[in-house]
Amino acid sequence: MSTRIVEVRAGVLKKNDELARELRSRFEQAGTFVVNLVSSPGTGKTALLERTLTDLRARGARVAALVGDLETDNDAKRLARSGAQARQINTHGRCHLEAEMIGEHLAGFALPELDYLFIENVGNLVCPASYDLGEAWRVALLSVTEGEDKPLKYPSMFNSADVAIITKIDLAEPCDFDRVAAHDAIRSVRPAMPIFEVSVKRNVGIDAWLDALAARRTLWQGSRPLATT
């Protein structure tokens, strides 16, 4: 008996990609700018997000957040202190969020009444790179305590991001953090990537980050296809 090769060409993550595409068009129709935050555990995603939600609300924006962790709703409680609606997704062992989990946790959010929806991914620099969540912007965070070569070690993740944020910048000096080397490492895996440096604790760089978010949202609003309802 002979064998022959039959072409298939099916994406292994097709199901996730299709769900993400549906989510993206829902977000576009509703006018909700969705940001996916990715980093290692302990980089400061939640701290930056709590601050971002608080300050965006003070600027008059309507915001909400979804936060992924294996267990506990600690982060959703922290984020809720901002006054924004925050919902926890427990993955129970899964190392990343998937589009399906986002879809399941949108019930109760009135998307047309939200200007921004932030998704804080599970702390992990490997797996979340492969899973599209329907976001408009993917933000990769890196803290000065992690070392400036992190992007070189995790190129798939940093390459998949649209923006990089270096957090805990107030600790750069005590950590002997080489800022130039960090910028070089980020741009080595993604040339021309915009980079922000922030310290939530010392209030450094937050306004520049918020301005960039708002500018990006405006750009996105202009570029999205017209709602067809």
């Binding site: 090769i5 039959v6 298939v8 060409r9 292994v12 798939s156 390459n159 080595s188 895996v189 040339p191």
Partner: peptide, 27 residues
């Protein structure tokens, strides 16, 4: 995979043409 520069001329090169695939090609 962590140096997005042209190996010949050294110009930054971020436009990916292939390398992110994860697909069942054939049976």
């Amino acid at each position: 995979i962590n140096r997005f520069r042209c190996p010949q001329c050294g110009t930054d090169a971020g436009e990916i043409r292939s390398g992110r695939e994860l697909e069942v090609e054939s049976l």
